[in-house]
Design a protein around this nucleic acid. Structure first.
Length: 210
DNA sequence: GACCAGGCACATC
DNA sequence: GATGTGCATGGT
């Protein structure tokens, strides 16, 4: 499986090149983006981020103080805006309660322990937690998303019923634990998914992996 | 107008 | 443990 996974990576990298993830100006922005992009197009998230920046609200302190209703209105383009305002608030409460709003403090914690803490926040599930760990805090954790599952499933690398952890372990136990590799690999899978592995096209004749 | 997008929590069986 | 549902805007 190690060989297979490396082969896939090489094919994707040769085809698509570096993806330059995560598209964000700051570490904190990665975290906010990770929550806002849940089941949503990234372009919509960008609109919300622009809104927040326009009002100079894009800092941990200011978002922490901002009223939830106001926050919801500003992130409207991301969809599920009431829910996501609540989730951002849940994260910020956690962030200030445990780490005084400091990424540096949070980043000092043991990765597995921090992962469990993030998962205990309402609104942060496995993909969001792992996105924060990998793309914001640069911990060697593989991120699994809908595209990852779909691609692996259609190529019969996993069962349809495979759990998040099973899929994540497939990568983490068979690849070098490298932040750079995990970063690029996940981004490339998303790229492949967007371009070739759409939900309503179960048979793709031009898949670059074939 | 249908379908989909870089999920998650919660209810119910 | 599996399965269903609400959350919602914007692009194709």
């Amino acid at each position: 499986m190690t060989r297979k996974l490396n082969l896939i990576y090489n094919k994707l990298y040769t085809r698509f090149g570096t993806q330059n993830w995560w598209p964000a100006d700051t570490t904190f922005e990665v975290i906010v983006g990770a929550i806002l992009t849940q089941n949503t197009n990234w372009q919509n998230v960008e609109k919300a981020i622009v809104n927040l920046k326009q009002y100079r609200l894009f800092s941990p302190q200011r978002l922490y103080r901002l009223r939830k209703e106001k926050l919801a209105a500003l992130i409207k383009p991301t969809g599920y805006y009431n829910l996501k305002a609540k989730r951002l608030k849940e994260f910020l409460n956690f962030f200030f309660t445990f780490y005084k709003g400091s990424i540096e403090r949070m980043s000092l914690v043991n990765t597995e322990k921090l992962r469990q803490q993030l998962l205990s926040v309402r609104g942060i599930g496995p993909e969001t937690a792992d996105s924060i760990l990998l793309y914001a805090l640069e911990k060697p954790v593989f991120v699994v998303d809908a595209y990852t599952r779909r691609i692996l499933s259609r190529h019969h690398f996993i069962k349809d019923a495979a759990t998040y952890k099973e899929i994540q372990n497939l990568f983490m136990k068979n690849l070098k634990k490298s932040v750079k590799l995990f970063n690029e690999y996940h981004a490339l899978l998303v790229r492949l998914g967007k371009d070739f592995c759409l939900k309503n096209k179960p048979r793709c004749q031009i898949c670059p992996l074939r």
